[in-house]
Design a protein around this nucleic acid. Structure first.
Lengths: 339, 339
DNA sequence: CGACCAAGGTATAGCGCTAAACCTAGCATG
DNA sequence: CATGCTAGGTTTAGCGCTATACCTTGGTCG
């Protein structure tokens, strides 16, 4: 097959270990002259170390898993705005000479399988709900450095990187309240298992309180995070609660559906109803009117995930268990004063 | 670390090879009773084979690389509608017990490095231009099964999976011509290196000829595939060529920018100008008016890529070198009769 | 001047697995 | 009865690398 350490060693007239030391930059043991000579040959022959052999012989595989839920036989649930995170993760890791293995998880147990099979040094969990993170146990995880994105678990086995969801909701709701709205609805997916939504809800609630607005449970709706879900909700809202003048939603796509649903029922955004989305997805700036929304620091998220992981792998003092990144309100065209 | 074949062998009182044969389902060599017994122990102890050891000992790594250009130090260039392909690829491969390694490529040479380092069985090249595929040489590729997506190279070292770009352009342009348009513009990125755009251009040109419309080079514009690119182009078009009543573009995002650019110049779509996009991106159905566009069979693309790769890995007769999938015109609201 | 030590290596023993060759009993066959 | 064959294993020899212990040579020091 390819060129091996042995080949290089033979050509250089040194032992295999000397070549290994040079290739791995262990300066101490080799004279500068020998090092130069070996490096020459390495370049000339196009030597590429075998990662499997390394992984087998050393403790470390320099491999990080990107684990994503894959429901049943269906596809990976990477939502579009997550792609950016994936790209950033790959870049950061490659810079540090780590590699990324993309793996869909469809059964409990597959996580362990993935970790052990490839002897992963670390893993990033993307899109799992809190319960799944809670359930991770030491036998599954071993000493793999795990980072869960956007979870709110207390499981010490996984570190966590997320945006300040509470703060984002506060920003959004305060913006609406500040514009003079009093009847502000909240729309998002079921939040039994997802701390993200729960946090946003709490942020929403706190701002109501702050502004002396009575919390009305009827204004909180469980809506699927899809265009259709938002659309149906919009029609329903227009019909049942014409008094509502603003809605804070947990996703842009939902917000866009909502706006169309409202329009279908003859209510215009932002004239009759104000809407704030979440995520600042690409399409938020492309719809008409442009969506006011909460933006997360996606590159920051990826960078923090990698930092936490590397800190843990470095074996020094344990890094923070959880990091929360700031968010920002992007004011565009869907939130205005109440009619 | 984990449980190894040796541990299982000791516990079952058989040789390590017997366990290996059972685990790998080589029926012939083991009695049913022994097999059952070993399987029990394997389950009980939670044995997971070490992929690195396998990869080292066997020829095959059961690993497929997903290679994506990463310009300079910046992020991966996975465009949003490609994500679906990635997800599908992962699913198909996992079903066949292969795994996906995500790798950004920023320098020539990194491809070889990736292939050799992880001893990849196959690789999918996503987003490289034709020239880069052309340049692949036997020393780089070895006998890795390579599939390039959306390229038009003649390099026998890579198989190719793409949509019928020529046919898609024919569909789109014929639709516009059929509605009665005679001054139809073409807008897309530079196509010196990208067969995809070139094919679409040829399809466009053929339909003009078909309909006896003289080809006017001034109606072909090189426009960047971004919202801003489309917007600028829209303004320019409205100002310079008010006679143009229809535009075929090579990307939805470009089309959306274009529509807004036209609007900014006081020209309305589809009343004054008809626009057809390409890709049927998610946002195509979310903008107002909804975009008429050409849809590709994304799941099909992933499935074909995997099929070609597996056929080649199976070592039987060489599979086709290139596969072209059908596309469909999605008629929505941006193409109508000329004013 | 013998003990000690650092610099610059080498030799050995695996990591966990597979491919391939080899063994052995038990039976059928000519 | 020698021969062959099959089922059901076992043994051996690595794959390419790293960790670790070891060796040698020439100085340094009390």
């Amino acid at each position: 097959m390819g060129v091996t350490l042995k080949d290089i060693a033979a050509e250089a007239g040194v032992s295999l270990m000397t070549v290994s030391n040079v290739v791995n930059g262990k300066q101490a043991r080799v004279s500068a002259a020998t090092r130069e000579r070996i490096m020459r040959i390495v370049k000339d022959r196009g030597y590429v170390p075998s990662a499997s052999a390394r992984s087998l012989a050393a403790k470390s595989s320099r491999l990080v898993g990107l684990l994503v839920p894959a429901v049943g036989e269906s596809s990976l649930t990477i939502d579009p705005h997550t792609v950016e995170v994936v790209g950033m993760l790959e870049r950061e890791l490659r810079r540090l000479d780590y590699h990324l293995m993309l793996r869909g998880i469809s059964r409990r147990g597959e996580i362990t399988e993935a970790l052990r099979s490839w002897n992963l040094d670390g893993a990033v969990l993307l899109g799992f709900n809190d319960i799944e993170i809670d359930r991770l146990d030491a036998a599954d995880v071993g000493d793999v450095a795990m980072v869960a994105m956007d979870s709110y678990s207390a499981n010490p086995l996984a570190m966590e990187v997320r945006s300040d969801d509470f703060g984002g909701a506060v920003l959004a709701t305060r913006h609406l309240a500040g514009l003079g709205h009093r009847r502000i609805a909240f729309a998002g997916p079921a939040f039994a298992d997802t701390g993200v939504v729960h946090q946003r809800f709490e942020g929403y609630r706190q701002v109501l309180e702050e502004h002396g607005i009575a919390f009305d449970p009827a204004l909180v709706s469980e809506v699927e995070t899809t265009h259709a879900g938002g659309f149906a909700y919009g029609r329903r809202l227009a019909a049942e609660r014409p008094d509502v003048t603003a809605v804070f939603t947990t996703a842009d796509i939902l917000a866009i559906g909502l706006i169309e649903g409202l329009a279908a029922a003859g209510r215009s955004v932002p004239r009759d109803v104000s809407v704030v989305g979440y995520d600042n997805a690409d399409l938020a700036a492309l719809v008409t009117p442009k969506l006011t929304t909460v933006a997360q620091d996606l590159p920051g998220k990826a960078a923090e995930a990698v930092r936490l992981m590397m800190d843990r792998l470095a074996g020094g003092p344990r890094p923070e268990r959880a990091v929360s990144l700031d968010v920002a309100l992007i004011e565009r065209g869907t939130a205005g004063p109440p009619p």
